[in-house]
């Protein structure tokens, strides 16, 4: 009987230990704006991204998207309870990124979460191919003396400005590996430019933990392939995920999906390789 009690107690303890999540809290919050020109005649609508820095991990995500999603969910919740047709006020940033990047400082490995269609995916990214060349140029960004560095990373040439006085080896998106926080980074075509807008040392810290939500683990290569397919042919991905659309109308008139495809701009991801 005693041994049975011990076994039961131990199994409860095991469950408890496994269900514990790594706890960290955000010490520093950096807000970046993303600008640049996705193509020659189209200036990107500026959006904000947040980099939360904790003791052991960092989290990079679209701040606007996270706020918009919670607003949209609350609208849906209220209206669904009322029954009938649901109307959603479009205050959300539909075109904001779903990508959330967690990086472990100890291992240097990132865990990237994203949504493709109806499914949540995640992949592991080691970012070992980011090799910087430090340059003598200096500039002042947000009152911090910054040093210039160049790197070629996954098909694009980058120019970055980092602050050696801020001892955080990170930056926006997945960029890292400089001896100080990256406050500005852009590619030589100016397709993407992240510019630090504010750096806040938090008094009221909030929890920072890697998402435990259900997601499918895939390789980075598989993710990239799937993402491109999703961009170029969303309907095919929808169908593969069990979602089917009727013909429908655009602005009240029947539409031709082939015509729509012709108007689409080229898929131009941040990582080309």
């Amino acid at each position: 009987m005693k041994s049975l009690i011990i076994i039961i107690t131990l199994s409860f303890l095991t469950v408890h230990v496994y269900s514990q999540q790594p706890t960290d809290s955000t010490l520093v919050k950096i807000v970046y704006t993303l600008g640049g020109k996705p193509d020659s005649n189209h200036k990107r609508a500026s959006t904000k991204y947040t980099l939360d820095i904790g003791r052991s991990i960092s989290k990079f995500y679209s701040y606007e998207k996270s706020v918009a999603d919670s607003l949209l969910i609350s609208q849906l919740e209220i209206q669904r309870n009322l029954g009938g047709q649901i109307s959603i006020n479009n205050s959300s940033k539909l075109a904001a990124s779903d990508k959330v990047i967690y990086r472990s400082f100890a291992s240097g490995i990132s865990m990237v979460f994203d949504i493709i269609g109806m499914v949540d995916y995640r992949y592991i990214d080691s970012v070992k191919d980011l090799i910087w060349k430090l340059l003598p140029d200096t500039a002042n960004i947000l009152g911090y003396k910054c040093t210039k560095a160049n790197a070629h990373f996954r098909g694009r040439n980058y120019e970055a400005w980092f602050a050696p006085d801020i001892p955080i080896q990170g930056g926006p998106y997945i960029y890292c590996g400089l001896p100080g926080l990256i406050l500005n980074i852009k590619d030589d075509q100016n397709t993407f430019e992240f510019q630090a807008l504010s750096i806040e040392q938090l008094v009221n810290k909030y929890p920072l933990a890697i998402s435990q939500s259900k997601s499918t683990l895939i390789s980075r290569a598989a993710y990239r392939k799937l993402k491109e397919m999703y961009y170029n042919n969303p309907e095919a991905i929808a169908n593969s995920q069990g979602l089917y659309f009727g013909q429908g109308t655009i602005n009240g008139a029947p539409y031709n999906p082939e015509e729509l495809k012709k108007k689409r701009k080229l898929y131009n991801p941040i990582e080309l390789e």
Binding site: P38, R44, A45, L94, K99, K265, N268, I270
Partner: peptide, 12 residues
């Protein structure tokens, strides 16, 4: 929205 608009602004 993606099918109709393309979402070129997202750094995917």
């Amino acid at each position: 929205d993606l099918e109709l608009c393309g979402h070129t602004d997202i750094p995917e």
